[in-house]
Simulated assay, not measured.
Amino acid sequence: MPQAQKISPNKTLLISDATRPLAASWFDPDYWQSQHALAGTGTGRGAVWFIKSPLGSFVLRRYRRGGLIAKFNKDHFLFTGQKHTRPWLELSLLEQMRSLDLPVPRPIGGIYVVNKGFYQSQLLTETIANAQDLFEIIKMGQSHQLDWHNIGAVVKQFHNQGIYHSDLNCHNIMIDQDNKVWLIDFDKCEQRSQNQQWQQANLDRLKRSLDKESKLHAKFTVSDAQWRNCLEGYRG
């Protein structure tokens, strides 16, 4: 479980990696910009910043809402207690998965700020070194170089431990230079009892993401044989 440290009446720091000098400033992109350590930005469920500094390489993510509600409420969530906040839940799950030796990013910490019954929050994880997401690899026309059997086998490892990924898609699967497969972005995910229905739904969601991107990008192609190889790896 992350360690909570109250740093002001309405601001709480959540620490997963006690070996680092974590401070509230670590969750401020302007701080990293002042240190010339802001390496880039990204998009996803939240605003994302990539940090490369002498203290380490990190991904900083701000939790944001999706769907229609985001049009008038981008990043405020109802506060119902610390253990229900998005960073607490995601850090706790990451710690649990790391203890199970599953390939996920190392959790560093989180922060949340409560105001008038609502909170805003951010999460900090360690960058997976020398890795690209599955989307970028396929988009570059390199799907034939991927070990699809192993991708399926790694998804099965998570399912065997009851890990439900609420948004399993080709952007949340990473492959490093040693061809190790990683899963990322565990917001709104959980450990639950094994059930074929949600496990199949995870696989279906991944397939839909591949099909969707293939319609948007000319070089993004995944053959039926490659997908079958992925399923064979999943089934063992």
Rank of each mutant, 00 (worst) to 15 (best):
Thr125Pro: 06
Leu134Lys: 13
Leu146Glu: 09
Lys83Gln: 14
Thr19Met: 02
Ile137Glu: 01
Phe77Glu: 03
Gly233Leu: 04
Ala225Tyr: 11
Asp224Thr: 15
Arg65Gln: 08
Gln33Cys: 13
Asp187Phe: 02
Pro103Val: 08
Arg205Pro: 06
Phe27Leu: 05
Asp75Tyr: 03
Thr221Pro: 12
Ala23Pro: 00
Lys212Tyr: 13
Phe50Trp: 01
Asn10Ile: 06
Ala23Asp: 10
Lys11Phe: 03
Asn179Tyr: 09
Gln200His: 09
His217Glu: 15
Gln33Trp: 12
Lys116Gln: 15
Gly233Ser: 10
Ile163Ser: 00
Ser223Lys: 14
Asn195Trp: 06
Thr80Asp: 09
Gln196Met: 11
Glu126Ser: 15
Arg208Ala: 12
Ile137Phe: 02
Phe27Thr: 00
Gln157His: 15
Asp187Arg: 01
Thr85Ala: 01
Asp185Glu: 11
Phe77Gly: 01
Arg106Gly: 10
Leu123Tyr: 02
Ser143Ala: 15
Phe72Asn: 00
Pro29Lys: 07
Gln82Ala: 05
Ile108Leu: 12
Asp167Phe: 07
Leu168Gln: 01
Ser209Asp: 14
His36Gln: 15
Arg45Gly: 11
Gln5Ile: 14
Ser53Leu: 11
Lys74Asn: 08
Val154Phe: 04
Leu60Trp: 00
Gly44Gln: 02
Ser25Glu: 15
Lys215Tyr: 09
Lys139Pro: 07
His144Ser: 11
Tyr234Gly: 03
Lys6Trp: 12
Lys6Asn: 12
Trp182Thr: 10
Met174Ile: 05
Phe158Gly: 02
Gln197Asn: 13
Met174Glu: 06
His165Gln: 12
Gln226Trp: 08
Gln35His: 07
Lys188Asp: 07
Ala129Tyr: 11
His84Trp: 09
Ile51Tyr: 05
Leu100Trp: 11
Val114Cys: 07
Gln161Val: 03
His171Asn: 08
Ser99Asp: 10
Lys188His: 07
Asp28Phe: 01
Lys156Thr: 14
Glu90Asp: 02
Leu13Ser: 03
Gln177Cys: 10
Trp32Glu: 07
Tyr164Lys: 06
Phe72Ser: 09
Phe220Asp: 09
Ile108Glu: 07
Ile175Thr: 05
Gln142Leu: 14
Trp148Asp: 06
Asp75Asn: 15
